[in-house]
Amino acid sequence: MTTLKQLLDASRSRLTPVYGGSEASWLLRIIMEHIKGWNQVELLMRADKEVSDFTVTRVNEVIDRLLVYEPIQYIFGDTYWHGMTLKVSPAVLIPRPETEELVDIITKDNPQPDLKVLDVCTGSGCIAVALAKFMNFPEVTAIDISDRAIAVAKENAALQKVKVDFQTADALDLGAALTAKYDIIISNPPYVMDKEKSAM
């Protein structure tokens, strides 16, 4: 049998050449939290205890995917962002930390209630959901061209218990979508380099 310490040491040695020592340790904490529900303290307390073959196999499967650069957020299907656990999938981009700052600026600069907000290219719905949650009773509409993205965004709104009107629409042809006047229009679309366009 394998102890937890042996499993973590072996896993870290596989991840470190690709991700570096600090990120390898961070990834292992996330892996063990998702697979076993153990936090950092529990990992230390259980270090010398044996782990099941199933746990070893599951950890190794996740590491195999990480070693081909699959994001851990896609592997487990969620990410922690702006104080919320949000669903993500390859249908949406993973919310970035700097987008939290954008939400904070909007929330701080617009304390008045009942504002109408439009989020263009909503993706996971992170911005729309955060604004619906943290602003003062806003009316939030969010659009995306992808039905798969809208499905993820709707799931996030439901998980956070907020109301957002999600619509499938093309950001480059908003005539039909813009049937109302909005106090705030926000968009944080994907960044695509010219050399990447032909492959998309």
Rank of each mutant, 00 (worst) to 15 (best):
K108T: 15
I94R: 12
A151Q: 15
P95L: 04
S146P: 11
K36I: 01
H34S: 15
I145N: 03
V51C: 10
D114H: 14
S52F: 14
N110Q: 14
L44E: 03
V59C: 04
E42Y: 10
V68Y: 11
Q73C: 04
F137P: 01
V92Q: 08
C126N: 01
T57G: 11
L27R: 08
I105P: 06
I127T: 00
T55Q: 04
V62K: 13
I150E: 13
L44M: 05
L43A: 08
I72K: 12
K108H: 15
V117Q: 00
V18P: 03
N110K: 06
S89T: 12
L118K: 03
I63T: 10
D104K: 15
L44W: 12
E139D: 14
H82K: 15
S11H: 01
V152R: 13
S52M: 04
A24L: 02
M45G: 06
V62A: 10
D147S: 15
I106M: 07
P90R: 10
L15P: 01
V120L: 15
Q40Y: 02
M135N: 00
P71F: 06
D78Y: 05
E98F: 13
P90Y: 05
L93K: 07
Q40M: 06
D144G: 11
D119I: 07
D114P: 03
Q112A: 05
M45Q: 09
P97C: 12
L44F: 14
E61Y: 01
K133A: 01
T85A: 09
K49D: 07
I127D: 00
S25Y: 01
P111A: 08
L118P: 01
I72Q: 08
A24K: 02
G77F: 09
P113H: 04
V18W: 06
T55I: 09
V59M: 08
D144S: 10
D48M: 00
A24H: 08
E33M: 14
A130P: 00
S146C: 06
I30G: 06
T55N: 09
S89D: 04
G125F: 11
R58G: 03
E42A: 12
V120E: 09
Q112H: 10
V152C: 12
A91Y: 02
V18H: 11
M32F: 06
R46H: 14
E23L: 03
I150C: 15
V92I: 07
L44P: 11
A149G: 13
L43M: 08
S11R: 06
F54S: 12
P111V: 03
E61W: 00
M84D: 14
T57W: 10
F137Q: 12
Q73D: 05
K49H: 11
D147V: 06
D119M: 09
G125Y: 08
S89M: 07
L67C: 02
P111G: 13
V117P: 01
A151Y: 02
M135R: 02
C121A: 15
L15Q: 03
V41G: 01
L115I: 02
L28M: 03
F54D: 09
P113R: 06
V103L: 11
D147Y: 14
V68T: 14
S89C: 11
Q73E: 10
P97Y: 08
V51W: 13
K87H: 13
L28K: 01
K116T: 15
M135E: 00
W38M: 00
E98A: 05
